[in-house]
């Protein structure tokens, strides 16, 4: 079997969302002498990328993404013995994510948290209707690299701006990247309030977080 075929087998195993299939494909790739980094990058991660695309197109859903991420994690753990100590467990970054005060919408924000987590970020989801000061406190507590601010109503959107102002007042703005999202948010709004990025959906949130933090 060529390397490309092995990579496809690994990717297909991740897309199948089945842990057993991923474990078997990883063992097979190892036995063929393929480097762990290549197995992860060209096989497992490529599969996760495809899962992300299928999620974006409404063909796969959150439980499937979670199962695929779990299966990939299992595959990576098999490879840990062959990898340098910190390479296997290193997180891509720490992100605090929540829906701003006055806004009880939860689902979109939770999907973003889960997708970021599945992509390898350490995510601290602090819930919905979160007092703005709690964002600052959690950022300090976790030494976060990024904060995600969700708002689904035009009336709660200004909360995103207020958190940015609070970050400035606390001297944290240069250290912490700010991502905003939610139905009424736009790229223009993000620029206007001085956020680092706007993400239209969960897949884009992962892409933008990687661009800014990795």
């Amino acid at each position: 079997m060529s390397k490309e075929e092995t990579f496809k087998e690994l990717a297909d195993a991740v897309i199948s969302c089945k842990k057993e299939a991923v474990d078997a494909a990883v063992e097979k790739a190892r036995s063929e002498g393929i480097e762990p980094a290549e197995i992860i990058e060209k096989g497992l991660a490529a599969g996760m990328n495809e899962v992300g695309i299928l999620f974006e197109r409404g063909k796969l859903f959150l439980p499937h993404v979670m199962l695929a991420a779990g299966a990939m994690e299992s595959g990576v753990s098999i490879l840990e013995a062959d990898m340098p100590t910190d390479a296997a467990s290193k997180k891509l970054g720490v992100i605090v994510n929540g829906t701003v005060e006055g806004d009880v919408h939860d689902i979109g924000k939770s999907i973003v948290s889960t997708m970021l987590q599945s992509a390898g970020f350490e995510v601290h989801d602090i819930g919905r209707d979160v007092p703005l000061q709690d964002f600052i406190d959690k950022i300090k507590e976790t030494n976060a690299d990024m904060v995600g601010l969700s708002a689904l109503m035009t009336t709660t959107l200004p909360g995103q701006k207020e958190v940015i102002e609070m970050l400035k007042e606390q001297g944290l703005r240069d250290k912490v990247k700010v991502m905003v999202g939610g139905a009424p948010a736009t790229e223009n709004w993000a620029n206007k309030i001085g956020a680092d990025c706007y993400a239209e959906n969960a897949s884009e949130a992962v892409t933008k977080a990687k661009e800014l933090l990795v």
Binding site: L62, P63, M66, S110, S113, Q117
Partner: peptide, 27 residues
Amino acid sequence: LGLYYTPDGPFQNPGDLMKAFKIDEAR
């Protein structure tokens, strides 16, 4: 359906369960 999940209702929030990889419990 959101009102039937914690903190507003008797069932555990599937979003929280999902993040903890408890997919069967979330379902």
